Simulated scan of single mutants.
Amino acid sequence: MIANRKDDHVRFAAEQQRRPDGHNQFDDVSFVHHALAGIDRTDVSLTTRFGGIEWPVPLYINAMTGGSAKTGLINRDLAIAAHETGVPIATGSMSAYFADDAVADTFSVMRRENPKGFIIANVNANATVDKARRAIDLLEADALQIHLNSIQETVMPEGDRAFSSWGPQIGRIVAGAGVPVIVKEVGFGLSRETLERLRELGVTVADVAGSGGTNFARIENDRRDRADYTFLNGWGQSTPACLLDAQGAGIPVLGSGGVRHPLDVVRALALGASAVGASGLFLTTVLDGGPPALIALISGWLDQLKALMTALGSRNPAELTRCDVLISDGLRDFCADRDIDIRRLATRSRSHRGGPEPIGGTR
């Protein structure tokens, strides 16, 4: 049954990606153009540092799948692309492995195809410390993701219905994992209050994983005999909204959810993300064209990311937080309701002219 569910997730996620909803709140973020801000491309580095982690690029393949024969092949292809491009990669939820270790290879194939890459194992917030360690050991993982998905579980016919233990269990996993732990949502966003709670639990990195990309409420609703949770299709906060809400929460954040192209990556970095993840577009790309297509796409993104940073005058991803950005439309309304001061974002470059280079890992 778990294998069938994993295959359903991939099928419905790909269908969503091929029929996008339209407006994305990344479009509510724009840069003030300064015509003399540009620097030399040779001075630009894509290296990013956060929460004790250093990556050569601020882009990663976020959690997708695993647990069935079909999804094992997808993980193989994703890992090949990660190996060729040098981007970090996260596996999908490893709950299927805990239920049946016969599917272990659908996850461990990532390490086999990407022996020296940065690989992130993935478990749910109900996992025991022992299960978390098993997941890490299977992949020889460099970090662990704990995913939060209460809305998905609510709509999922066979989903969990008890969430009160999640916070304390996250604290136990963080203490016993032995590797950096990244707590992420699955597409409904992390609020400032949630980030502050995670910080109190000892979490050192969080992925806000907001709405705008794959919608797991819709996916689980499509799996039901009757689509009776359609009213939850618009639940959650967008990734840009979460990144703005996260400012001052005291924990480094990653940004994923609704990322469509390199400009969205730069927007997320400018709003405070230390790195940016993508799933949906990468999934359909590898399904349609295999590893060569995804390698070409990611390589192009990295090249364009460096080009945009050159034009914006940012020598590294952290310096993008010095760029002047404008917030408009629905995202502006969100900031007003959450008491987020966006006026300073439009003029922040003035306070950094001639200042010292930001130190990676401080966000």
Rank of each mutant, 00 (worst) to 15 (best):
M156A: 04
F188Q: 09
A3E: 11
N24L: 01
A270Y: 02
A13D: 08
A318V: 12
N215I: 13
D137H: 01
N122M: 11
D100F: 10
D337C: 07
G72R: 00
D101A: 13
D40N: 08
Q237T: 06
V181G: 09
P88D: 07
L78K: 00
T65P: 07
R260F: 05
D341H: 14
S299F: 14
S351F: 15
G236Q: 08
P252C: 03
S349M: 14
V32C: 14
P56K: 15
M64T: 01
L308F: 12
A63W: 01
S68Q: 04
G212C: 04
L244I: 09
C335N: 15
L308I: 11
H352V: 06
P115W: 11
R260Q: 06
F31Q: 07
E319F: 10
N124D: 15
I327R: 04
D303Y: 13
D28E: 01
T239A: 08
L269A: 05
G171P: 01
N149H: 02
R172K: 14
W55C: 08
D288V: 00
E196F: 06
S108C: 06
R112K: 09
H352D: 05
V208H: 02
S274W: 04
D264R: 01
L287Q: 01
V129T: 12
L190E: 13
N62E: 10
I146G: 12
L254Y: 02
L297R: 07
N114K: 05
I146W: 10
R332V: 08
H34F: 11
D329T: 13
K184N: 09
Q152M: 05
S279N: 04
R199Q: 10
Q237G: 05
E15V: 13
D264T: 05
A268K: 00
V44S: 00
G289K: 03
G202K: 06
S30N: 02
P180N: 11
D324I: 11
V265F: 04
R344H: 14
N221C: 14
A37E: 15
A125Q: 11
S328R: 14
D21A: 10
F26I: 00
G176Y: 08
V57K: 08
A296I: 01
D40C: 06
D228H: 13
G92A: 00
E15S: 14
I182K: 09
S93W: 03
R172W: 12
S328T: 15
L269V: 00
A175D: 14
L326S: 13
L190P: 01
V123R: 09
I327F: 03
F282E: 01
D225A: 15
H261E: 06
S314L: 10
G280R: 03
M1Q: 15
D137L: 00
A293V: 06
T285H: 02
L36T: 13
G67Q: 02
A217M: 15
L243A: 10
A268G: 06
D288T: 02
R224P: 05
S150F: 04
R218T: 13
R315S: 15
L73M: 13
I251D: 03
F282K: 02
Q304M: 14
C242P: 00
A318E: 12
